[in-house]
C-alpha cells in the first residue's frame, strides 16, 4: 500500500462530502495505483474534465500516483 495526499480545487471540492480544504484527503492505495484510479476512488466524473498535477507537473491518467506525494486536482481553466 502507498499513501498519498490529495487536494481538490474549484467545484471538485463538492465531489467529496465534508471536504476539508486545509488538510485535503489522505488516501491509501495499492502500490502502482494510477492517477485514473485515484480519480475513480474519489468519485470525480469524467464530465468534470479533471486534470492532476504533482510537484509542478501535469500528470497523465496512466501515470502512477507518487508515493508520499501530494496531488492537486483541478478543472480546466483558460486565461483572462
Amino acid at each position: 500500500m502507498i499513501t498519498i495526499t490529495v487536494k481538490l480545487f474549484s467545484t471538485l471540492r463538492k465531489c467529496v462530502p465534508d471536504y476539508d480544504p486545509e488538510r485535503g484527503i489522505a488516501l491509501d492505495l495499492p502500490s502502482g495505483a494510477t492517477v485514473e484510479s485515484v480519480l475513480g476512488q474519489l468519485g470525480i466524473p469524467d464530465s468534470k474534465q479533471p486534470f492532476v498535477t504533482c510537484q509542478g507537473r501535469v500528470l497523465k491518467l496512466t501515470d502512477q500516483a507518487p508515493i508520499g506525494g501530494t496531488l492537486h486536482i483541478f478543472q480546466p481553466v483558460a486565461g483572462g
Binding site: 480545487f9 501535469v58 492537486h72 481553466v77
Partner: peptide
C-alpha cells in the same frame, strides 16, 4: 463547457490562482 459552466460562475478568473501556482 465545464470551464464556463462550472469554474467561472463559482470562482471567476481567480480560479486560475491554484493551478498556476501548482504549475510553478
Amino acid at each position: 463547457n465545464p470551464f464556463s459552466r462550472d469554474v467561472m460562475p463559482e470562482f471567476g478568473t481567480a480560479g486560475l490562482i491554484a493551478p498556476v501556482n501548482s504549475l510553478g
